[in-house]
Nucleic acid binder design. Structure first.
Lengths: 337, 337
DNA sequence: TTGTATGCGTTATCAC
DNA sequence: GTGATAACGCATACAA
């Protein structure tokens, strides 16, 4: 229609130099009139890779991940890349299957929030990385070998939470942990314990409750803790969602938060300040993690030789009204004596 | 390595008949040892379409959409399809740009939650549909012409909410609306008004507050309503997130929920029953909408001749503790007289 | 500045 | 049952 060859069209579409203005105009006009849309699949085949980055997360339903994905998407779309979304459901099988799928799709990179321990999917990840697919991984995986580790100081986040509660006079402090199978669980438990070690205080094993990242885990964890002979006066939850479950359960059992029991969450999701009471929580720069993780991947797509190490993200304990001094009842009694 | 031709490999990979067992075994072995992964891009090029469905939503950060996307993903992955995720940010420009992108990627179908009114992106959608790309659309678009409309009875959901509050004796009932630019806003306002019409009661214009779908809209809306000479005794929010903002703001101004002011949300997000107070809300089958929307698309990929009309989803007012009878103060006074 | 030839990795169609 | 050939739509190298 424009009386030019296919490759002239290609040159126009890809804004290559060496096309005369009148020719370009003719081509653009024809493109408009024919509603021509370049076939991205053919381009990708020719280029031997797509303008697509895989994002593999446990589940988009956990409020951590929408923000994470949003950051990733913003970074990607900025550079003309799109996102392939996969929910692994905390299931190692699915995770590996999805990694293969992404490989088949010849994604240009992979942003993954690791589900499992090093035993399962990490070898697959390493193998992918050895195929020169840039990978950024949150929550697991050693850096190097083509894999960038996105790290928040998991130990620090729980240490700060526990330390804050210790500073408020609490001694009976419980922790509803992340899913025990995840690496992250160990690190967070370690940080939690560290606060006690630093303060030279003992820690009771029955206050460490195996948990998860869902509302339900908060409900179950709180019930379990309330059934103890000496229930805790403060609870650290695996994340804000769990904290919501905990607070709800405490209230339903007639405990007031924070005057009877203090609660600390982790993440600082957007509604944290609007809960009742506003939630004290270990804030993570979730959006930034997704954004910078993706940016790093895109950078390495451009320049595959960039070294891969780790990117650290700072966390910050955001103190609101769900934590307060240890209930004074017992202290008063001892003063009276 | 297996001493066979390329097309034999293709036949093995695609489980085509006509391959002898020993040959297949040799090929599979070679695949394993060479870590061969079929190139999905090349397959897609040959097949002239990809095994990918675009999902275009306003923003994954609004808690409605993770569940919606999750439903879509589950349906897609069931049939071997993957998801291309796009956040339009309620921005018509972006929405149209993304639709073009999806077209370039030759997605096999599109699941979209329409942002804007019929003026903007619907023509683009219709054009896409005319290229025989199966489309399912939530919240806008007329069905037919290759577009399936996913519908919840938007009018009914607000009618039921308002009716519930009228039944509790409330008369000063406010509605913080969805973004006024969206089709959905008109429908929900209509339903809200209908309840008053049916009850032969007047409706005050100052109780209809332009809103949105974010926490912030709830905060702003509540502040605006509280500043009225006669603040409402009940508030219907555009969604649960907005309701959280409303409740938080009411409490901060010393109002008790529900004894001073009742609040109704819309959506029934997973944490709705765990809020304080547990939220009365117009429940939508969000996951199901995403799931069935995607299923319909996949069905039409198989059989392009299927008729396109609409799929209705039922809503249900879930009554919890954020709504109660109208405050009795005034009634008592009038009784006393 | 524009046109010609070639190949990216598959798969469909045939002949062997 | 298996092998040769062509084509999907685009982009590169090079020639004109």
């Amino acid at each position: 229609m424009a009386n030019v060859s296919i490759q002239t069209v290609s040159a126009v579409v890809n804004r290559k130099p060496g096309i005369s203005d009148p020719t370009r105009d003719r081509v653009l006009l024809a493109i408009e009139r024919l509603q021509y849309r370049p076939n991205g699949i053919a381009s990708s085949l020719r280029a031997r890779k797509s303008h697509t980055v895989g994002v593999l997360i446990p589940t988009i339903t956990n409020p951590f991940f929408p923000e994470f994905v949003r950051g990733a998407e913003d970074a990607a779309s900025e550079k003309g890349y799109s996102i392939f979304l996969c929910n692994s459901d905390e299931d190692t099988e699915k995770e590996i299957e999805y990694l293969r799928l992404l490989q088949r799709h010849r994604v240009a990179g992979i942003l993954v929030s690791c589900v499992s321990g090093p035993a399962d999917s990490e070898p697959v990840l390493t193998k992918l990385a050895s195929h020169h697919i840039p990978i950024a991984s949150l929550g697991s995986a050693q850096p190097g070998q083509g894999i960038v580790a996105l790290r928040v100081s998991e130990t620090e986040i729980t240490r700060a939470a526990a330390n804050h509660l210790l500073g408020l006079g609490h001694r009976r402090i419980a922790f509803i942990t992340p899913p025990p199978s995840k690496n992250i669980a160990q690190m967070r438990i370690e940080g939690f314990k560290k606060a006690f070690l630093d303060a030279n205080l003992p820690i009771r094993p029955e206050y460490l409750v195996d948990g998860g990242f869902e509302l339900q885990d908060g409900i179950r964890g709180a019930q379990q803790l309330l059934s103890l002979r000496y229930p805790p006066t403060a609870i650290v939850a695996a994340n804000d969602l769990v904290a919501i479950g905990v607070i709800s359960t405490l209230k339903r059992h007639g405990h007031r938060v924070p005057s009877d029991t203090s609660v600390v969450g982790i993440d600082d999701i957007q509604m944290a300040p609007l809960l009742d009471p506003p939630l004290t929580t270990g804030a993570q720069p979730i959006y930034q993690i997704g954004l910078q993780g993706m940016e790093n991947i895109l950078l390495r797509i451009q320049n595959p030789l960039l070294e891969t190490s780790e990117i650290m993200f700072e966390t910050r304990l955001t103190i609101r009204q769900s934590t307060a001094k240890r209930p004074v009842k017992k202290t008063l009694i001892s003063l009276t004596r």
